[in-house]
Design a protein around this nucleic acid. Structure first.
Lengths: 213, 213
DNA sequence: ATGTGTGAACACGTTCACAGCG
DNA sequence: CGCTGTGAACGTGTTCACACAT
């Protein structure tokens, strides 16, 4: 497998979503052109992205939805369930715990918060636990990912604890740059950063002049 | 202003956060090196990113925290408050409405949901309204951004209504590729995509072989 | 004939070395 | 002399043209 642009991985996730949608709609054959249109990229891009991993189509025909779907799930590691713990059960953590579609891919194996008054809460049949349980839970319940939904000022400390517990990846909702060993994957999903970027892009094209000041 | 890589904008947001943190801590001079370390990029990168917009430092000395902070806020369009509406007041929308730090940058000017049973709910002093109010609200309350926190299957339809109402940018939490006119900026903040990518990155480096199958 | 798969050209973003200024 | 600012070199990601399979 040659060097794969990491942007290609993001697009693969999009293609997979489109394929699952096509499958639900009963479509079983597609093409790079159709995928490109729905993903809003070029057909070249679709084919190149797929070619980093193999040849999944039939020349002159296209792709079989089911097959390509299965291959993408394989590539992305979604043909198995990954164990996930949510750390920080405030509003955001609670919303995520109940998010629909979530459990098709991930297996919720722990909910953690440092506030004991939350221990009685239940989401998807699980109780919220104290942070002291975290290391043992990660080991015993095979928790591979930690989802960080704590306030920004405690995010780094909690990330440390997750790393020490042997976590393999962190999905970070806090607006901070986490320091973790390079073996630990981190994805930032920070909506405040998204809003800041929006401001820039909106300000720029033609509104810039009239609005600065 | 030369062509600016859009990745540079994301980094600018990070630099700004670091500067605001430094300012709170009473630091008033910094350097590309310090910013680079905290943002986990190179000092070259920091200086280049800033140079797309101007010269904000003093050669041989460094940057004044306050000045650079102000300049970055200006560049990113954060020296004014942008009007924001949240559409979709389920768990996620509610969590976002109460998110701390939010109101320092954005001014919440509307909460919308199609479910009348939510109209009695109040967040930051605002009532939830029906979707019919959306177009008028966008115009009259100068709502520039829409934050989409609706289920995936209604995201595109709601995006249409936002665009028709004259919105300038959409922050999209739904796992779909939105079709909007090119003048409307869209930022995708999709945590399921983040989790999918995590799987890939975790699977790859050394766990790949042992886990596939 | 048709749509995939891919090496090669191209464009874009990042790195760097050093010029420029305080 | 120190640290910023930037043109040019480099490397990575995207676009493309076309060879190839059915």
């Amino acid at each position: 497998m040659a060097k794969v642009p990491s942007a290609a991985i993001s697009r693969l996730v999009t293609y997979l979503r489109i394929l699952e949608d096509l499958e639900v709609r009963g479509v079983n054959r597609t093409s790079s052109e159709q995928l490109a249109e729905e993903a809003q990229v070029t057909a070249f891009q679709v084919r190149k992205d797929l070619s980093y991993f193999g040849s999944y189509g039939t020349r002159g025909v296209g792709y079989t939805v089911q097959i390509l779907r299965r291959e993408l799930r394989q590539i992305l590691g979604l043909n198995r369930k990954w164990g996930l713990a949510i750390v920080g059960m405030g509003r955001l953590g609670q919303a995520i715990a109940d998010y629909p579609g979530f459990s098709e891919i991930f297996d919720l194996r722990g909910l953690f918060d440092r506030d004991p008054s939350k221990y009685h809460m239940t989401f998807r049949g699980m109780h919220v636990e104290g942070m002291d349980n975290l290391p043992r839970a990660v080991a015993e319940r095979r928790i591979e990912f930690g989802l960080l939904a704590v306030p920004a000022d405690s995010a780094q400390a909690v990330a440390h604890r997750l790393v020490e517990s042997g976590i393999k990846g962190i999905l970070n909702f806090a607006p901070v740059v986490l320091e973790v060993p390079k073996e630990v994957a981190v994805e930032n999903v920070d909506f405040l950063a998204g809003l800041s970027r929006l401001s820039f892009f909106v300000l720029n094209p033609k509104w810039r002049e009239e609005m600065i000041g």
